[in-house]
Design a protein around this nucleic acid. Structure first.
Lengths: 234, 234
DNA sequence: AAAGGTATGTTGTATTTACAACAAAAAGGC
DNA sequence: GCCTTTTTGTTGTAAATACAACATACCTTT
């Protein structure tokens, strides 16, 4: 676990906690590490929660597959981000989604009960950790609400525009890279890939946006017309 | 505030905390109460967070209105539930949605910083409160993911079936009442009301479900065919 | 009971999507 | 370079939706 201390220091969860304190806390929190190869399942739908998980290296996708096999990427996890924290409550039931490694990954698991139960003597930074955890979960919460904003649009075009303009704003640039290929973006927005591709090209031909692979550029003038109503939200 | 202690005792947030301790904590957490009449705004899009809010009486709707005025009900708040907790982090930005009173309501506000900072001397049940808060937020989180599940369905019929069968499961009965009228349900699922009404009647004529006003009954056999794939998720 | 308002159901049409099938382009292996 | 595989773009058609307009049922008030 010691090899991850330098990494953990830079995560939101351990923000404001020094390396020495992290070293102390790792034992207190029952930290363990596990590696996954690309494509491997980290958590499966129907499993019980395994405590608080933190992605140390690689990349993960949180996916949902319905009865008929339609795949939907609910979100992606990048290094330093946590997941699985919503399934540690006694009555939280089983995991609703799959988590898979989109590339070779290393995941750290912590004992959530130890995280939430303050132990003043051993961990002077425990309160900070709890605040960090809370803020992190709040951020995820807002992310879910934001995605609900994309999904609640009626047409593919509106879904794309709300997502892309939002991503532009988040990356503070009208040119930005999205973490999906076309199929993944279609899955993320729950639309048909070919219809989405069609719509993207239409908007490109209409001068609303430009793109090459996963790099998009939104024409600012058009962006104002199409979706600046969203900009006040974030 | 004292008048609310009996109510708070029954909320998830104060689960396991006695009335005497709640009385102590109310002062420690800077609790304040405010009343709202039906239709009044509790929080507006663009405002800063006001700490942790708890609905004591009445009912609230969390709504999103886009640039063109299309209204979407993201969720509803019932007495005893908390809200606004996702906007207390220093970097959480402004509120993304509106919160309105769907009936005359009373809301309690707490100082979130006081909630998260443990004060061992004054509040022996503070750790319990933090756990409760965390579990509550996790539950909301799972609710958002669940709604994303409805929204990610492609057709109105699938959206309806996934929502209704889920609601049946949550209420543990094939006959259940939903907290929306038709227009609100259509807004909640982001579909056209008349098209939704049409689809509901089609399914009724096909024997998949029955309904009267907001009370629905799902035909069990058909429910298995149509959406039991979801039942494992929750 | 009548009137007015609200909620819900119904229908037709233009628009949009899903789906399938294929073409073109890009990436990777040898 | 050549081949294979993957990704992306394109097109046509059947199906589903949004929208508008209206009909009916229901509720509330007087």
């Amino acid at each position: 676990m010691k090899e991850f201390i330098h990494l953990l220091k830079k995560t939101r969860l351990f923000f404001g906690v020094g390396e020495e304190e992290i070293a102390l806390m790792l034992g207190c929190l029952n930290g363990t590490a596990r590696s996954y190869v690309k494509g491997e399942y980290v958590l499966r739908q129907g499993e019980r929660g395994r405590g608080l998980a933190l992605l140390a290296r690689g990349g993960l996708h949180i996916r949902k597959e319905d009865y008929w096999g339609n795949l939907s990427i609910l979100s992606e996890i990048r290094p330093g981000e946590i997941f699985g924290e919503a399934y540690v409550a006694p009555d939280s039931g089983t995991f609703m989604n799959d988590v898979t490694a989109s590339e070779d990954s290393v995941v750290l698991f912590f004992d959530m009960d130890k995280v939430l139960s303050v132990c003043p003597s051993a961990c002077p930074f425990h309160t900070q950790l709890i605040k960090n955890l809370f803020y992190t979960i709040s951020e995820r919460n807002r992310g879910l609400v934001r995605k609900l904003g994309y999904m609640s649009r009626r047409t593919t075009r509106e879904k794309l525009l709300s997502y892309l303009s939002d991503e532009a704003e988040r990356q503070n640039s009208s040119t930005f890279t999205i973490p999906f290929n076309r199929q993944q973006l279609a899955d993320f927005l729950s639309v048909d890939r070919s219809a989405m591709s069609n719509e993207l090209c239409k908007m490109r031909d209409q001068g609303i946006l430009a793109f090459h692979k996963s790099e998009f550029t939104i024409c600012e003038a058009k962006m104002m017309d199409a979706s600046s109503g969203e900009s006040g939200d974030y």
